[in-house]
Design a protein around this nucleic acid. Structure first.
Lengths: 344, 344
DNA sequence: AAGTTTCCATGAAGCGCTTCCACCGGGAAC
DNA sequence: GTTCCCGGTGGAAGCGCTTCATGGAAACTT
């Protein structure tokens, strides 16, 4: 590939314009005649020109790169989130640098070492609770920061109302006859991330059940790691406590998938003997017919990217808060809800 | 933090030298009197100076940054690997950029988009099988590339002999009485990574058993995802097939940990009724007394970094291959081996 | 028709560094 | 004492870009 990258001068020469004009085209400056712009763009195309980000950074003070700091956890959630962020950013010709946070120490290095601060114009922090880990809950950076899947009064925050999601789940499952169980996902063991989302989901769930007159039995809660196998173990556990039909709310789709898997292994009819409701609304839930409380992860990522772009363009208002609401998706795994709610 | 970054000129002024000298200090050029060097370094320290990588890149063609492409899988293995790589690189004042590969498409973008190629001087690819995914098994980049935890005849490769590790495991467990079971870790479902390491471990394991006159029974193999809960399910499965004492080889420490956990839950004596042998030699195995086939992950990372540094400094010899050997660590989870090997 | 504004376009200056040529002083060689 | 060499050092040139002062021409004014 790339022998010798063409520079802006070669583009200018080929397009028959000055180098300033090429630069203006690159930066979407309005004062370029459409016809000229087209000519320049064509020249770029023909030469296979891409701007040198280092040069841009050095000259203009902007690098057209955004950092996304996220837990080093491989889940569908983060895949979707990044997709959402990327969609918006690529459109504006911004680039994305991912920084998986392997450890607390690493996060600090990312920020303090000036490496990252130097390289990027803005920062999206996913699922990270700042207040716990930084003095005054402030990141040691002067770049704009947006939080997603997290909340902090000092920064723009984009998040899902997880309590409401749990509430929806509780409200829905309460309509069915049979015992109600729940799988809660454990917090990260290393405490680097205090993921309160799972606790919030459970709190909403229990509140809804209480209001429906079917208070949640503490023994019906099973806590597990975020894995499919965790769901399998959970179902086995539940079946020791109660016989079908049972209703299971899993705090995450991945866990719910394990419940489905184990139910099938045990020859139980999903949607009748075992009703399963997940959380997240990941794409695969549709394929397997898993009912779920869906969160618009891509939209959340896109929103975060938008807020960051605004900040990078100079917006300096007070921190904004964008709350997203989950939605119940009914699929086969919960069967047909009864016409009238179940009354104990 | 950082109001306005000091530049090389300010450092030069403060140290009372010319800017060329400061640059020479930065680049470890030999022709600087030690005394002068010290003065410059002190000035840098006092001003909190850090070089601007963009400027370095633009001026010198080197950015002093290395990319590490690794699966977006949060395991102890990659944490250790990065630690090893980082140790060597930081010493040479190189920086590290992590690129978690979320998907095949993303990897291509990383490489083709010129973004990464522009930003970094070299590339370490972890656990990735090229031949499957790129034409001619060549990455579309002109930067030096080193593979780690993978092998390819076209690039420097650093890897563990996983077959031998499995062999050691088989050899060892064959000495004990009782049925022998094995937990194999499943390949990644999305096939982005064709992790053959687990298959290799199992192959070595079975070969060793065969030679010891105790051929492995296919039904004694349980395949699971890489999770602690997978180990728990595995043990339950084994106990349905055979009663204690049993010997379990788990293809990964994390899975082995689940086996231990479940054994304790079931009230079985680890090291007597259930003997467990893991693979990886992660630090936590010492704490929990887990016997394991240890791989020197940090050393492998360090070696990969070294090879890359050499390449970046211009070495252009044929691809090199560095094979590491695993070692058996005996701990409490396998109890005391019998004086004489068990003979069926 | 001449002055005024608006719209585009140009290219020099400069971003923070590396590199390289020039230069300086002093010890070794004659 | 003169020449040569060489370890040290200074600073101009230049990397690929953005920005900005400048200017030319077309589009409005009056």
């Amino acid at each position: 590939m790339s022998k010798k990258k063409p520079t802006i001068l070669e583009v200018a020469a080929r397009a028959g314009v000055g180098l300033g004009t090429v630069s203006r085209v690159l930066n979407n400056h309005p004062a370029v005649r459409p016809e000229t712009r087209a000519r320049v763009l064509r020249a770029m195309e023909e030469l296979g020109y891409t701007p040198n980000p280092h040069a841009r950074r050095i000259a203009g003070g902007r690098s057209y790169t955004v950092s996304v700091l996220l837990p080093f956890v491989a889940t569908e959630f983060y895949r979707r989130l990044i997709e959402g962020i990327e969609g918006v950013l690529l459109e504006k010709r911004y680039d994305l640098a991912l920084f998986p946070i392997l450890s607390q120490a690493r996060l600090r290095r990312y920020l303090e070492n000036t490496t990252l601060a130097y390289l990027t114009d803005g920062l999206i922090l996913a699922s990270y609770d700042l207040t716990e880990h930084f003095e005054e809950g402030r990141l040691p950076t002067d770049r704009p920061v947006v939080l997603v899947d997290a909340q902090n009064p000092r920064y723009d925050s984009v998040y899902l109302d997880n309590f409401q999601g749990g509430y929806l789940a509780g409200e829905y499952l309460a309509r069915f006859p049979g015992a109600v169980f729940a799988v809660k996902v454990e917090e990260e063991p290393d405490q680097a991330f205090r993921h309160t989302v799972f606790a919030q989901r459970m709190a909403g769930f229990q509140e809804a059940l209480r209001r429906a007159g079917r208070p949640f039995i503490p023994e019906h809660l099973y806590t597990t790691r975020l894995s499919q196998d965790g769901g399998r173990l959970a179902l086995r556990h539940f079946l020791e406590k109660s016989s079908p039909p049972i209703n299971v709310f899993a705090g995450a789709d991945q866990v719910a998938l394990g419940v489905l898997e184990e139910a099938e292994r045990l020859g139980l009819t999903v949607g009748r003997e075992v009703r399963v409701l997940g959380f997240d609304g990941h794409p695969f839930t549709e394929e397997v017919g898993l009912s779920t409380i869906a969160q618009p992860v891509e939209a959340m990522g896109a929103k975060a990217a938008q807020l960051l772009l605004e900040r990078m363009q100079g917006y300096a208002g007070a921190p904004r808060e964008v709350r997203f609401e989950p939605v119940l998706l009914e699929r086969a795994s919960t069967g047909t809800p009864p016409a009238a709610p179940y009354v104990p």
